[in-house]
């Protein structure tokens, strides 16, 4: 039983990182209809940016801050202006293909600097706690708490501030939002900026475990999507639930079913969910428009 709780807990920690990436995914989808196939690479690049800043001798907090600024400029502003805006009127397929191309370019661009995995400093001390026979690492607890705080913070921002509510209005109905005097392009840009910040945070939390490598984003992006769909694509809370379910499910399946099929767990959960509840566990049903 102690094993079970241990697996459950470390699964929650991994799942909370999936949730961060999934939350960015759903926000982009709600605000601009963008499906970002490069979401995993959006986590990989900040990891390398942080390492690069740190290699100039900067302390970790400063390089994290600089990375966030850089990410908002590149993964937020430049991504929106350069790729999403010009392709938006053609439809989803073009955006999907362009982001696939972007992910190939990013992954192999980083690969040119070297294919080896770089160690990444952990935020947390290498300490283990023993709670009622269950051993948990400090980094699991820290990751879970930090990721939860970020998700809840994003939720609060969206629900309680005027800007956040304006962003939600844009996501729900762009036309009425702009009639009400909301600056729609700016709100969409804010969404891209938040996605970039969440990606940086996910990089900070996941890289000590995954190590900084050019292909670290490959599976992360897919799992973020599965998590988003399982939770409900049109609900930000769904991303959190979906992320945790995928993280825990993977961990338990690897231990009790088959480690070789661990990567198929997210798919299996996804298939079950869309068979019985296509709108996701927390999602609203969307009416089709003619």
């Amino acid at each position: 039983m102690a094993d079970f709780f241990q697996l459950l807990f470390s699964g929650l920690a991994t799942g909370s990182i999936y949730a961060l990436a999934a939350l960015g995914f759903t926000l982009l989808w709600q605000a601009s209809g963008t499906i970002n196939f490069a979401q995993g690479e959006f986590v990989m690049l900040p990891a390398f940016a942080m390492l690069a800043f740190a290699s100039f001798g900067m302390p970790m907090p400063l390089s994290f801050f600089l990375t966030i600024v850089l990410a908002i400029a590149v993964l937020g502003w430049a991504f929106k202006r350069g790729i999403v805006d010009p392709l938006f009127r053609y439809g989803m397929m073009q955006i999907v293909v362009a982001t696939i191309g972007l992910s190939i370019a990013m992954r192999n661009g980083v690969r040119l600097t070297g294919a080896e995995a770089h160690p990444f400093p952990s935020l947390f001390a290498d300490r283990i706690y023993n709670i009622a026979g269950v051993t948990v690492t400090q980094s699991d607890i820290g990751t879970l708490v930090l990721a939860m705080l970020l998700v809840i913070g994003t939720q609060a921002f969206l629900a309680r501030t005027i800007t956040g509510r304006a962003m939600q209005a844009v996501a729900q109905n762009t036309e009425s939002a702009s009639v009400l005097g909301i600056n729609v392009p700016r709100m969409i840009f804010y969404t891209f900026a938040i996605n970039a910040i969440l990606a940086c945070a996910a990089a900070l939390l996941v890289t000590p475990v995954y190590l900084a490598k050019f292909d670290m984003g490959e599976s992360l992006g897919t799992k973020a999507f599965f998590a988003a769909v399982i939770g409900g694509f049109n609900n930000s809370r769904g991303a959190l639930l979906g992320g945790l379910i995928v993280g825990v499910g993977e961990n338990l399946a690897a231990a009790y079913v088959s480690a070789a099929y661990k990567d198929a767990v997210a798919l299996a959960l996804f298939m079950v969910v869309i068979l019985f509840k296509p709108q996701g566990l927390l999602g609203r049903k969307e009416e089709r428009k003619v």
Binding site: Q94, G101, A105, R107, L112
Partner: peptide, 16 residues
């Protein structure tokens, strides 16, 4: 090594 990088970028430009 450059091929896939160029290919990916070319796909993005082609789509635009």
């Amino acid at each position: 090594d450059w091929y896939l990088f160029v290919f990916g970028s070319a796909v993005v430009l082609l789509m635009i």
